[in-house]
Nucleic acid binder design. Structure first.
Lengths: 211, 211, 211, 211
DNA sequence: GCGTAATCGAGACGGTACGTCTTGTCTTTCC
DNA sequence: GGAAAGACAAGACGTACCGTCTCGATTACGC
């Protein structure tokens, strides 16, 4: 979880490493970070069921009330924890060629989703959307829509470049490209190898006349 | 939940409506059915979080221990409830033509998964696999594998018929066909309309040379 | 049970009748009293078997956990409930004459033990010592020893007054005096009348040369 | 528990060591003995709370129903178990002299009640009378009255012999003699030594003019 | 010697209470 | 006014026994 300690508030002079016990000028950044780290540490260690507000507070060395003050549920904590990592980690590359972009990005996406801590949090959050419709809306707005926008980038850039026809339904085509990948990762649990992502890309290239 | 009351023990003469209290040679079918019905009634009414063993037992008019005697967790109850409905409901048709089969089955599958009580239970179970690895294995073995086998049927029958090449990787091709559909239903929550399933079928037919 | 409501926190100004929901520095006096009252109300109404932690909590309008937080078992609740009443109720009188003290105290003791709510709790607790050795130790230390000390008071005061020889084994003699009384109340259940307590006192006076 | 195996039905010929499975006319002596033994074995091993009908049946290798068929509660099982031992074990001796009888019997009674398995069962049963008034009546009728009758024997025999006045209230005097002993064993738990029983006897002899 | 009737084992059943756990709220005290 | 501490009401968890019941096997007696 060091990825977040990098962004820790260096406190304008390093002097404030000492314990914070509340003040009248805003919330404790220290507490915020500790909570987010505790949350996904717990997720990785003990699974979703092992994440409890009680446990997060205990591990973060924080009062339960401090968690409840800023997040309505443990799932929202996990969402915040995830959002800090996602944006930087799941960006498709831009080589100026849609085929190359896809052949690079799809395996990377599969790896991220299935084999990293970030992916574990993502899978847990997607799962939670099925158990809690209210969270589903929040999750889609704050996380999933952005991810889908990123997933569409290779195609949209290719359209702008003229590599693909201007009237291509990039949203639908993207779903055809990444859908089977998400399906394997999130539903069947089957491993997604190079040959599978290549098959996805090949099918796409063939039906758009690029191969 | 009437779909199960249909299969209620007809009692060889109607005389055996009398209460069963357990005996040496097997469990109470009455209790079993009441529990399964109570479980998915609760799921539909109050969502996954609203399903509790306590609630199931209370609604089924059954002792908690009777639930625990036969199912380790509430999720396993839901799985059994689901399995009773799934097999009969999610069978692809066989018109002797792969294109027609797919154009019939895919919209039906999308409808079942997204808009029926059976689908609600399925989505909850898939979600639960991400929160409980032990259940994931059970779910895949007892439910998902069978569903995937059914999903592959149209393609496999076409291969047998000679409509498709014998060396077609039906498993992978099926994932390309149904993956985007499951993705929309289970991840993005976006509606799956006719135009989307048609796009899936068209892409498949074109890449296999059938159109 | 009003004997305890009398001692209710007078709230330094009457303003604190408002509901207490716990805080950092100490437990809820309101909850404590409600639990003790509920416990011996239940004992009197339904007998020892009818006293359950569940029932105590329900009647006291308190969460089960609040009972378990402060008392390990229901028996310890009853013990605390009893201790609040015992001290004031079971004190032998001091008329400056051992004969008169005993003729007053023994019937009173017999009445208290056999015919009052306080006595019912006492009998239940003594009984419980035989079913639970750990409780037996606690009971003796926190309750019985004190009671025996009180029972010895008339004799000890007489010794101090010079009415009885200084080398009298007051502990053993007290057991001879009250033992038959407790025996009838706690073992045989036979009523203890005036003629029986008088016989006890007469026997004592004769063997100590006071009559 | 061998004391009971001695009285085991010798099977009219020794041939019936084979398993009994019930018959029309009468119960299984084998089951009856196994249940009684299991009950007081459990009491001695795990205390009263550790005695459950379930546990008795399991240890006796018997169906729960077989216990319930013949005894309404576990306490009644223990009572029966106790009655088989009591009569023979707690009989006061008859030396033709009340002083000698008492000096022999009282220490023996104290020992039996406080230090043997039989005594443990007795104490548990007395305790149970305070938790269950219905059982109290049964216990008094079937056990306690008989024990008190035995306790009175030395005095009654002395009256018959002319050693004690004919108008002596043997019942009350017996309570004065044994009451303190039961009190120590059943209430205070204090050990009852020779000096204490001697004090009891001395007091009795003095007040009846025998010493 | 055959049916009948009571007993036996086994164990599932509807329940109650257990003691533990987590949730989300509230209160107090310190900074 | 934020934070730590932690008591509180609520209620589900999974377990242990309760006492009832049904079942099929076993066995002694009486026709």
């Amino acid at each position: 979880m060091e990825r977040r300690t990098r962004t820790a508030a260096q406190d304008t002079a390093g002097r404030t490493a000492r314990r914070h016990h509340g003040n009248r000028h805003g919330r404790s950044e220290e507490a915020r970070r500790a909570i987010l780290e505790a949350a996904d540490d717990l997720l990785v260690e003990k699974g979703f069921a092992g994440v409890t507000v009680e446990g997060i507070a205990a591990r973060a060395g924080v009062a339960k009330q401090t968690v409840y003050r800023w997040w309505p549920t443990k799932t929202d904590v996990l969402l915040d924890a995830f959002l800090e990592d996602m944006a930087e980690d799941l960006v498709p590359p831009d080589h100026g060629d849609v085929a190359r972009d896809l052949r690079t990005y799809l395996p990377w996406l599969a790896y991220m989703l299935s084999s990293t801590d970030t992916g574990a949090v993502f899978r847990a959050l997607v799962a939670q959307t099925h158990h809690d419709p209210a969270f589903a809306a929040v999750f889609r707005e704050r996380c999933l829509d952005e991810q889908r926008r990123r997933d569409r980038l290779p195609l949209e850039r290719a359209v702008r470049r003229g590599q693909l026809p201007a009237d291509l339904d990039t949203a639908a085509e993207t779903d055809l490209l990444v859908g089977p990948l998400y399906y394997r990762v999130l539903v069947t649990g089957e491993p997604v190898g190079r040959e599978f992502t290549d098959r996805l890309v090949d099918a796409f290239l063939r039906r758009t006349g690029l191969a």
